[in-house]
Design a protein around this nucleic acid. Sequence first.
DNA 1: GTCTATATTTCGATAGAC
DNA 2: GTCTATCGAAATATAGAC
Lengths: 194, 194
Amino acid sequence: MTSAQNATRERILASADQLFSKRGYAAVTLRDIASSIGIKHASLYYYAPGGKKELYVAVMERNFLRHRQGLTDAIVRAGVDVRMQLYAVADWFVTQPPLNLSRLHEADMDDLGSDQADALMTLAYDAMRTPLRSIFEPAAAAGLVQIHDFNVAALALVSLLQSVHNVPAHYPMPVRYQIGHTLVDMLLDGWRTR
Amino acid sequence: MTSAQNATRERILASADQLFSKRGYAAVTLRDIASSIGIKHASLYYYAPGGKKELYVAVMERNFLRHRQGLTDAIVRAGVDVRMQLYAVADWFVTQPPLNLSRLHEADMDDLGSDQADALMTLAYDAMRTPLRSIFEPAAAAGLVQIHDFNVAALALVSLLQSVHNVPAHYPMPVRYQIGHTLVDMLLDGWRTR
DNA sequence: GTCTATATTTCGATAGAC
DNA sequence: GTCTATCGAAATATAGAC
């Protein structure tokens, strides 16, 4: 496989990622993906002989692994303070396309085989849980936070932070970062007055 | 219009609501809706001459109005305590199909006219904001909670509570209610130790 | 590697029998 | 009111030229 092959496949996967993440499996056509990078849809079968399903699975695997790596790196760079680590997590999700876990296992997975769907969902959940556990576990051990179930907390944090993608489209990036930090503050400090 | 007409239209809208809410606009076909209530898809045009789009808009308007009414009633029944009111909100969302606001305005709305899409999104956001403001406003005025932006708080709460739909499918209802209450406690009390 | 051309299926929608 | 039959458009996928 030449590097030119890899480059084209890379452009395909990157564009498909944007489209699938935004609209979901059913609402994206192979012609959408192909035209977004200036080729015809039939050419996609040269890079993904399995067709739309193979493309979707490949894209989502990449997607989840990127999240896992991106979150891990962001947390490490943020230092040892829990709030700064969670700000870094929020910043990461602001820069990423929406991660619609609910749509993922309620709709998109119906078009895949159940074994492939299970494997993908496990990959997705691990991509969130593993990095976030590296925040929760030391903080809980040090008595800084009180979290009973790390898995529920991880899903809750991810679900909460996705609401930054629900603000009107014209909101500029700086405001989106600000909202992300506000959401973290909510979860960390709580609404109740102390 | 006879009552039999209304009854059939009711069955259509109810089933379409389940399907659209679960899979989204693009992934649901008129044949899916029709076969789910034992009729042929051509018969749907007798009740919705405007076709799929009209059916979707009608279903979603109903959906949002039901949420608005259901939330309002649940909050009133819960009494005056903020935590009990928020538990009632959590219980409501546990019993309802997933409310995927992100998919709504990132994917489903692309298939509608922009004016109709704007009207629907406004209806959706008001259905959440208005009932929740009746919790936030008195509680904030009494100094019980500290919330800077009611709109951000409302979207955050809804987004957070949707994570109860992300747990494995085999989780029984009592556990789902429990998780909903745990999510409310998280947001109310915060993770940070006091 | 990318294209054109086409096969096959499925969708939304309409016409008309009953 | 509900059906069968069918249309036209669009989707996935394949075949083969270049």
